[in-house]
Design a protein around this nucleic acid. Structure first.
Lengths: 332, 332
DNA sequence: TTGTAAGCGTTATCAA
DNA sequence: TTGATAACGCTTACAA
């Protein structure tokens, strides 16, 4: 079965390729008779236009690149799903890649996307590849940074406020009487991690608390590192009575670690940046800083579509404010 | 900044476009001198070949379509990640779409992928669009069905054995003394759901148990339907002492439902097809049929790549055997 | 209202 | 070892 082209349809319908194109794209004048005939041929032959050829001719790929750090993190997947729906609804296709928090993979992904002439890019960056990103933006491709900024790279940005809620959470912990607070942070190359870290430390200092180095663990946002962190913290001579975890996956790991050590899950007060959607199932003393992945995705998609569809050019920063929620209070 | 083409590079390097192409693709003879000069120009201009033009010319899109039903289900996302890595490593790009278990969306996705001339398709189908799929396969595009078969559509298939482990699980429940067993099933249009349903009912019948209609709930594989199911089941005059849930999301919902009703999570014995990775955190009487999404993804990718790269044409069915595990026993 | 033909950025054939 | 050039399937002036 040979590949069907517009010429085959033209021959079959007894008109020129231009007419077929006009009918299929609703551009230019076509008489109703011819129109019907063309559509009939298209249907009969089961013809489907070649999007690649069309892209080449129009010099528009109609595709958007998206690079997120972790395909297995529900937070990012919610963002991904939201964006995907919005873009597909507008006739774009999404080239979705996974950087795994690894700047090298990110670079490869970026290369691949550029070769595919994506018309826009959505990125939750690893913190690397700044030069590449600057070039990309300089070349006029709309770039929307998602969840994280990349210092030194100025682009549209949709993220959550990392400092305010963390400060609030720390004040809560101090006011609840905690004097030994453990901290599990992400890689400081990632802006969200850095901001959460700085805000937490500062808030505690301002509350007059010294944060001993041994209470601070540098994780990598993975479940495994959360587990390792809590196991180390709980073995301290004076274990923390409360712990701040900088993302959802590490919080998950934290609880797995406690469980493995046979420590009650409600023995430690926990503040997590990012929710655990199964937390209602076990006894805990967990507060979460609730993120809004749908809003992030939605805003990012809107900003990008504005640039793509309406040539909007002003730069936009949208900061979404996560809400500090004491889940343990909710379940009473 | 105008778009750079191979002509610009040719001019800059003082050679023909053919030579540039040869250097960049490592095809044909090029003298070492010219080679170096070309590469220098490419680098200096920061030229990146246009994958779209290349695709058109070579009549190869180098892209693969994948349609999965649920971007927020960790089972499918694990499959997705595995496949994505394998394909990207071979120079393909993945067009990844989400059918949301909806045949209409699936059809749209299929259309979009065909327009983009994907060279292969990976599909966990909704059960619909059979005619389309048959045409697609007939046209010579390799299709690998993942997780589910589509009755009436013959294609390569990588799935898990749904019957054996379910039978084993049911025998276990009966031998544990349960006489009132609830069942939460998925949509029977989906092969996995149907197979699990049939196997469960048959096993119970063969064990001499009548399954009352009121103990059977038809869910849709979503968390929400699992919750509704358990809430209905537990309100029966004689509530079940054990429940079989046909997928991970519904099991999640089941526990959320119990929790909401104030019923102890370990009051009901549960068998779940598909794991809950947080189950160690709460007290339960849960057994799971452990799936192997990495194996599924890996096998699917291998089969597809065999056809793509080595023109392998024999049809292949790989059945992976999930393992029945009593998690409650593990945590003792 | 329709057709002709140029051209999008590559690759591949053929000739030099 | 290199260069001209046709062609991939489509859209779009321009002509008719």
């Amino acid at each position: 079965m040979r590949k069907l082209t517009i010429k085959d349809v033209a021959k079959h319908a007894g008109v020129s390729t231009a007419t077929i194109s006009r009918v299929l794209n609703g551009s230019g004048y076509v008489s109703e008779d011819v129109r019907r005939q063309v559509l009939a041929s298209v249907k009969e032959l089961n013809y489907r236009p070649n999007a690649i050829a069309r892209s080449l001719k129009q010099e528009k790929s109609r595709s958007i690149g998206m690079i997120l750090p972790d395909m297995s993190n529900p937070y990012f997947m919610t963002i991904a799903r939201t964006i995907q729906q919005r873009l597909v609804a507008e006739g774009y296709r999404l080239l979705f890649m996974d950087s795994d928090e690894n700047p090298d993979k990110e670079r490869e992904a970026l290369d691949a996307l550029l070769s595919n002439r994506v018309e826009g890019l959505l990125l939750a960056g690893t913190g690397g590849n700044k030069e590449q990103l600057r070039q990309l933006i300089g070349s006029g491709i709309p770039v929307v940074l998602v969840d994280r900024c990349v210092p030194g790279v100025s682009a549209d940005l949709v993220m959550e406020d990392n400092r305010g809620p963390v400060r609030q959470a720390m004040e809560y912990l101090v006011s609840a009487g905690h004097r030994h607070i453990g901290m599990i942070h992400g890689p400081k190359t990632i802006s969200t991690a850095l901001e959460r870290y700085e805000a937490a430390v500062r808030a505690l200092q301002e509350a007059g608390l010294q944060v001993g180095e041994e209470y601070v663990y540098s994780g990598d946002f993975s479940r495994k590192s959360g587990k390792q962190a809590i196991q180390k913290l709980m073995k301290l001579p004076v274990p923390p009575t409360a712990v701040f975890s900088a993302n959802n996956e590490m919080t998950f790991g934290l609880y797995l670690g406690l469980q493995e050590m046979g420590i009650g899950l409600d023995e430690v007060e926990v503040v997590s940046f990012g929710d655990l959607d199964f937390s209602s199932l076990f006894k805990h003393r967990l507060s979460v800083i609730m993120q809004h992945p749908e809003s992030i995705g939605d805003s990012a998609a809107s900003i990008l579509l504005d640039k793509l569809l309406h040539q909007k050019s002003a730069m936009e920063n949208r900061i979404i404010i996560p809400k500090f929620v004491q889940k343990n209070k909710l379940s009473l």
